[in-house]
Computed example of a mutant assay.
Amino acid sequence: MTTLGVIGGTGWLGGALLRPALAKGFVAAADLVLSSRSGNRAGFEAWPDVRFTTDNAELAARSDIIILSVRPEDVGALDLDLSGKLIISVMARLPAAALTARFKSEHIIRAMPNACAEQGLSFTPWFSTPGITAADADFADGFFACSGRAVRVSTESELDYFTALTGSGPAFIAAFADVMIRDAIKNGVAPDVADIAVRQLFLGAGTWLAGASETPADTVRIFTDYGGTTAAGLTAMLLADITGPISKGLAAATEKAAKG
């Protein structure tokens, strides 16, 4: 029996990853130990066999695999020897070498899920050190697949870029949606109607885009070539250099991920 311990497991990200894994039976409730400083147990009422603790050393002693789901700035408070254990970090900005130095384990996986995990819609890239086994890799693939799609990447620099592209991505999409909502209100649309309209637009567009055979670039070209209102809007956005701010935002987020 393999016991999974999650430090910060009752936080928003820990819960968003764990509830799909529990619901799909990938993780058994009796094999799960969660810790939090507050002792909070909310969100796991459907699985009464999950064990809780406020003592991270106790969690480490009980667990074979440790998931670190805390803010990077809170790692300094974790004084644990995790020698020989598989460590899975879902924290940005802390490289595998730093995790090895702090927790004394050569078995490190770093992953970057996003805020869509609980809905089963996260894209989660993950990177591993040479010390992990095939069984470790299978666990990571299976665990993160419970909350969306998981892809193994070969370098930490690639993971840093995905921290910006898909880890931060839902917030970037929210910023675009907010601009559209505010523009609609400015043009006389009632705020509640504008909110509903734009949310539904992004839901429909995302679902359609995920299943489309055409690439996004093909879609833009098809609508631009067709002419009409969509082409007018796309052309105006492209002439205003919509690509510049997006690229700058991704570059800034990637730099932050890489440098901490």
Rank of each mutant, 00 (worst) to 15 (best):
residue 111 A to I: 03
residue 146 C to I: 11
residue 257 A to D: 06
residue 80 L to W: 04
residue 208 W to Q: 15
residue 235 T to C: 06
residue 108 I to C: 08
residue 233 G to Q: 05
residue 219 T to S: 03
residue 207 T to S: 15
residue 1 M to I: 12
residue 146 C to F: 08
residue 246 I to T: 00
residue 233 G to P: 02
residue 239 L to Q: 07
residue 246 I to N: 01
residue 234 L to C: 10
residue 237 M to N: 11
residue 224 T to Y: 00
residue 260 G to I: 14
residue 79 D to N: 15
residue 64 D to I: 07
residue 250 L to C: 09
residue 257 A to M: 09
residue 110 R to S: 05
residue 85 K to A: 15
residue 12 W to M: 05
residue 27 V to K: 01
residue 56 N to I: 12
residue 129 T to K: 11
residue 13 L to N: 08
residue 8 G to D: 07
residue 153 V to Q: 10
residue 48 P to G: 02
residue 49 D to E: 11
residue 213 S to I: 10
residue 43 G to V: 07
residue 260 G to R: 11
residue 218 D to Q: 15
residue 166 T to K: 02
residue 7 I to F: 03
residue 48 P to H: 09
residue 63 S to D: 00
residue 206 G to A: 09
residue 108 I to A: 10
residue 11 G to S: 07
residue 62 R to S: 08
residue 9 G to M: 11
residue 247 S to F: 00
residue 258 A to K: 07
residue 248 K to C: 05
residue 251 A to C: 00
residue 42 A to R: 15
residue 10 T to N: 14
residue 25 G to Q: 04
residue 138 D to S: 10
residue 184 A to T: 07
residue 43 G to A: 14
residue 165 L to Q: 04
residue 138 D to K: 11
residue 41 R to L: 10
residue 121 L to Q: 01
residue 185 I to T: 02
residue 237 M to E: 09
residue 76 G to W: 12
residue 110 R to L: 04
residue 216 P to K: 12
residue 224 T to G: 10
residue 133 T to F: 13
